[in-house]
Design a protein around this nucleic acid. Structure first.
Length: 297
DNA sequence: CCCGAGATCCGTTTAGTCCC
DNA sequence: GGGACTAAACGGATCTCGGG
């Protein structure tokens, strides 16, 4: 039994089709058949159920596939680690997030320390889509609200922040300093598109005090909300951190009831190899947000 | 150490069989 | 009939090993 056999077997097992697998592997189909037959002979049992011109993985094949895949994955992991040790690290870090201004200073600071690292950033509003991107391996990290609780995914709580209610300077509530959320039940809200996790969190706060917000504007881009509030279009939930109060003609009101708190979370796949650059980014991010929390309190 | 013969491995082509 | 699989024959590359 050798690696080539395992590689061929995994491909055939995945496709359950000899000719297509041969094309994928760029070998002649008879050669692939022979290789699979040899593997089956070595193991002393067929791994596929052959019916007419169809082949299907049998009970033994399914069992063996798990071990074959694990072996190949372990070797791939080893290869990546050796490459990294040998200085072949390309230094690319990828993550999926939604509200990007939140990470402006984090990224700037990281790039000052690691100027050769490149970023690949995906913006995605829906939480389930973000989690899928992470699980598929399209990104190294999920960095968003709310926390992910799913088997195989590890994470770290970065930050808990209270949302404020942003109102235009000319608004009747301006100058109040703080309000109860139910006082805003008749207001026109500016929010994010339905289905995005940020929107669901905010709708949840409103439901908690017995109303569903009237949306005058549903945005794609979180960063655009503050300018619409400034323009007097409506009110909106905003985190206090990424707002430039000198430029914006609106006020932030503290919400005393209910507690409009959301949690920023960094998540990664538990068993997937993370490059040296990605691991450095994880450490830097965790450190950055714990320092930010210290500065705040 | 180098070279050549044989063994082995992995691939191809061709032909045959099976069955939608 | 044609697509898909298997078997057989064969070729090229590489490995092994013994003799000079």
């Amino acid at each position: 039994m050798d690696l080539l056999q395992l590689h061929y077997f995994c491909t055939v097992a995945r496709n359950e089709h000899m000719t297509n697998s041969a094309k994928e592997l760029k070998v002649a189909q008879p050669s692939l058949s022979a290789m699979i037959a040899k593997l089956e002979k070595d193991l002393g049992t067929p791994l596929f159920h052959r019916q007419g011109r169809n082949i299907k993985l049998n009970h033994y094949g399914r069992k063996f596939l798990r071990y074959a895949e694990q072996s190949l994955l372990a070797l791939e992991k080893g290869r990546l680690e050796v490459e990294e040790m040998a200085g072949l690290e390309k230094g690319i870090v990828s993550f999926v997030a939604y509200s990007l201004p939140r990470f402006r200073d984090l990224l700037r600071g990281f790039l000052v320390r690691y100027p050769n690292v490149q970023f690949r950033i995906l913006q995605e509003g829906r939480m389930d889509h973000r989690v899928s991107l992470l699980e598929q391996g399209a990104v190294d990290f999920y960095m968003a609200y709310p926390p992910v609780t799913k088997e195989g995914i590890s994470g770290h709580l970065l930050l808990t922040e209270s949302l404020k209610l942003a109102v235009p300077k000319s608004h009747k509530l301006a100058g109040r300093g703080s309000i109860k959320l139910e006082e805003a039940k008749d207001e026109l809200f500016i929010g994010l598109k339905k289905g995005t996790s940020a929107r669901e969190i905010q709708d949840g706060f409103c439901r908690e005090v017995g109303f569903s917000p009237r949306l005058v504007c549903e945005m794609d881009e979180p960063a655009a909300i503050s300018s619409l509030v400034s323009a007097g279009v409506g009110v909106a939930f905003l985190p206090p951190q990424n707002v430039d109060r000198n430029q914006d003609a609106f006020e932030l009101l503290e919400i005393t009831e209910p507690a409009c708190v959301r949690t920023l979370y960094l998540a990664w796949m538990e068993n997937r190899f993370l490059s040296k650059a990605a691991r450095a980014f994880r450490e830097y991010t965790i450190d950055y947000f714990s320092n930010e929390a210290r500065r705040k309190f």
